[in-house]
Simulated scan of single mutants.
Amino acid sequence: MASQSRNNKILLDLVRQPGNNQCADCAAPEPDWASYTLGMFVCLNCSGMHRNLSAVSKVKSIRLDYWEDSLVQVFMQERGNSVAKAFFEKCVPAFYYRPQQHDCIVLKEQWIRAKYERREFTGENNLFESTLWKKGRDNKQFLKRIFVLSQKDFTLKYFTKEDSKVAKAVISMKDLNAHFQPQKIGHPHGLQISYLEDERTRNLFVYHENGQVIVSFFNAIRATRLAYLLKKHPTLQHVDLIPQLTNHCLKEGYMEKTGPTQREPFKKRWFTLCSVNRKLLYCKSPLDATDLGAVFIGSQDHGYSVSESSGRCTRSGRWHCGIAMETPSRQFVFMCEQEQERREWMEAFRKVIAQPMTPEDYATEVRRRGGALPADEAVQRAQKRPLIRCLVTAGS
């Protein structure tokens, strides 16, 4: 007869070992479940997804469930997270996004299905071409559009009809970003794609009913972005470029803003703070196709700072938790509805301001001021800053 207490103790000792002390799928600490058919430890959330793969994975609690001696022996002598990952993740492409503990469900579910159900990671990958639901630019209706990714010319194209010969849009990989926004888009598989169009940020909101398709599309974007960056920076390695493939915004939400003189009425706007390009974008609503404007946020070494503001000298709107942002050219004043929101925004602003600026950041700052950076100063600044940006994101 197997001793439940003895076997549970053995499992608890095993889960503390390096490699086993994080969920094999999302890296959550201290996993307390295990797939006894795959031979690895997973967290509670991922164990629920494994239950949907009953043909390939069966799970038990390492603390509460009964374990037979033979099952424990599998962990003791043959398997564990390191062995399982070496087999199931042997050929994961460099561009492929590996979900973490706090990522959305569709990313984690499709990662688990890709590894264990479909066993996709054999080193082969194809570019993506499929039909997605896309929100209209000027209305809320989602319509079917055909999307095509090309590594040959590093573009994303979409077409209104299957037989269309001319693309509705041809988007360069240069400034493209994609990240999942299920709550904002109102669909569990909602994906936001952003890029520059005439110096403004253009947003596409898409989804697919099939989680496999939308995650494959997301990773195909990352693959094409990686190919583009490798060509642009041939001396750099994958490890240097992977953090730049796709990024979460640092902070999003409503604030009120006023104009340059601070005498204009405050208007409610949806703000998005991007740490990668140091821009604070604002729109009328979360699902606007194009931003109304952008504020470049430089570093503290170049005259940028943020502090609380009472807003008493302005025509304050309904909200009174003020934020003042100082830049070399002007002061910006924003109002938050709640004190907690003000603290969160100020923390996000300070993270960006604390980041050192890259040569690309200097060029962006000068371009937004309408000037030109002297050649000797540009060289001097470039020599002092690394090419690859140190990213500060919200869990990317």
Rank of each mutant, 00 (worst) to 15 (best):
A220R: 01
A220C: 09
A220Y: 03
A220T: 04
A220I: 06
R222L: 04
A223R: 09
T224D: 03
R225V: 05
L226R: 10
A227S: 14
Y228M: 14
L229E: 06
L229G: 01
K231F: 07
K232F: 09
T235C: 10
T235D: 09
L236K: 09
Q237M: 08
H238K: 05
V239N: 12
D240C: 09
D240S: 10
D240I: 05
L241R: 06
I242H: 02
I242L: 04
I242C: 07
L245E: 02
T246P: 00
N247P: 00
C249Y: 06
C249P: 02
C249R: 04
L250E: 05
G253N: 06
M255D: 09
K257T: 13
T258F: 03
P260A: 08
T261M: 01
Q262G: 01
P265F: 09
P265V: 12
F266H: 13
F266A: 15
K267H: 11
K267W: 07
K268Y: 08
K268T: 11
R269V: 14
L273M: 12
V276G: 03
N277Y: 09
N277A: 08
R278G: 07
L280P: 05
L280K: 01
L280E: 08
K284H: 14
K284Q: 13
K284Y: 10
K284W: 06
D288I: 13
D288P: 05
D288F: 10
A289K: 08
